[in-house]
Computed example of a mutant assay.
Amino acid sequence: MTLPLNPAMAATEAPPVMEARRWIQGVTFPADRPLINVSQAAPVDPPPLALRQAIADAALTNDAAHLYGPVLGLPALRAEISAQWSKAYGGTVTPDQVAITQGCNQAFTSVLSTLAGAGDEVILPTPWYFNHKMWLDMQGITTVPLDTGVTLIPDPQAATALITTKTRAIVLVSPNNPGGVEYPAEVMAAFRDLARAHGLALIVDETYRDFDSRHSVEIGGRPHDLFTDPDWADTLIQLYSFSKAYRLTGHRVGSIVASPERLAEVEKFLDTVAICPSQLGQIAALWGMQNLSQWVAGERDEILARRRAMVEGFQQLDGWKLLGCGAYFAYVEHPYDIASNDLCKRFVTDLSLLMLPGTMFQPEGSDAGKRQIRIAFANVDLAGIAELFRRLKSFRP
């Protein structure tokens, strides 16, 4: 006898990163051509030693670190985010407009749970972040794709034509995963105005904000002006992850910035799925925010150097087209008469390269997806990037 299966779950695609990992199972890579894994956008190194020491000290001496905490997160961390965000974005964010979650994916799922249900619609620019699409599918929410074309920048006017009475939100990711592009401030403002005019939520996922080439508190730069609007909370919901900046992937710490009224609804979701965020992870995030600004600036400089190497490499690679490059990602169009999902499997065996095909980021059957590939270069140093291009140049279809 087969147990019941939720049809929406059955219709949801398998996790792409896990699927790609299966491609390398049982494969023996030559000693002179070890695997270069550019499939996942997650730090592989542990946090800096001083941060690990802070976590260890808290585990040993702070009894509260091992107990349930507030559902919406530690007050000190919420206050720190509100202060730093207000400074960085030139607007006003208060502590009661901040909530802490078990990673940014949980931030997204909790926010969407307050906004939409089965039968509703949410607009996602394509190529999309696959976990966003997966959650909508699991909930029976219709994903409405917004094609971004060759620029990978979504067009507010094109989005207008997609809005119906069932639309509940528009989701933007900037710097973009998978596209790498940084959305211009005027585009973000236009989407804010569009969402407000139609009574929709504008969800802005800024997981990679620390690696935006325009974002540096030290030089007074900021990627957008959304928080300078005194009424931002009536439309804007911002998501963030501490995983990338402080290498806290295993501690699962993210955040939501939204109206207190929205967070009161979010609290219902969080209380039922996690009760509270990880205490040690929150302590680590707070310590990092208060002590590692210069270290994070150095990490950003290193990522920007790798970004430059990717741009230069594709300028010298015949037939390939670099569509977007930034944060952790290069998003490219390959020149071969082979669908990207098959081509990426060939790269594993022929080149010892693991990367994700555009078919994982586009609607099923998308011709664009068959021509596109995402390369997550953040975990590959400059020598590794040079070797990646050497192998791509040697490929013979």
Rank of each mutant, 00 (worst) to 15 (best):
Asn105Arg: 12
Gly73Met: 06
Leu51Gln: 08
Pro95Thr: 03
Ile100Lys: 00
Gly91Arg: 03
Leu72Arg: 00
Ile100Glu: 00
Ala58Ile: 08
Leu67Cys: 13
Pro47Thr: 01
Ala107Asn: 05
Pro48Trp: 02
Val98Thr: 00
Trp85Arg: 01
Ser86Leu: 10
Ala65Trp: 09
Leu74Gly: 00
Ala50Thr: 08
Ala64Trp: 08
Asp45Ser: 09
Ala54Asn: 08
Asp96Lys: 04
Gln102Phe: 10
Val111Glu: 07
Ala83Thr: 11
Phe108Gln: 01
Cys104Phe: 10
Ser110Gly: 07
Ala65Arg: 04
Ser86Gly: 02
Leu72Thr: 07
Ala79Arg: 00
Ile36Arg: 00
Leu112Thr: 13
Ala99Glu: 07
Ala88Asp: 14
Leu60Pro: 05
Ala99Trp: 05
Asn62Gly: 07
Leu77Glu: 05
Asn105Asp: 14
Asp63His: 13
Asn37Phe: 08
Asp96Pro: 01
Glu80Phe: 09
Val44Arg: 10
Ile36Gln: 07
Tyr89Glu: 14
Tyr89Asn: 06
Asp57Trp: 12
Ser82Val: 06
Val44Thr: 15
Thr61Val: 12
Ala83Ile: 07
Thr94Glu: 11
Gly69Glu: 09
Pro47Ser: 06
Ile81Asp: 04
Ala41Cys: 14
Ala64Asp: 13
Gly69Pro: 05
Ser82Phe: 03
Thr61Gln: 15
Leu74Trp: 09
Pro47Gln: 04
Gly69Phe: 06
Leu74Val: 01
Ala50Ile: 12
Leu74Pro: 06
Pro48Thr: 07
Gln84Cys: 05
Gly69Tyr: 02
Pro46Glu: 03
Leu51Phe: 11
Ala99Tyr: 02
Ala56Met: 14
Leu60Ala: 15
Pro43Tyr: 09
Gly73Leu: 03
Ala76Pro: 09
Pro47Arg: 01
Leu72Gly: 03
Tyr89Val: 03
Thr109Phe: 10
Leu74Thr: 02
Gln97Ala: 05
Val71Met: 10
Asp63Met: 10
Gly91Tyr: 03
Cys104Gln: 15
Asn62Asp: 15
Gly103Gln: 08
Ala65Asp: 12
Pro70Ser: 02
Ile81Thr: 09
Val44Tyr: 06
Ala41Asn: 09
Tyr89Arg: 06
Ile36Cys: 02
Ile81Tyr: 15
Arg78Gly: 00
Ser39Asp: 11
Pro75Leu: 02
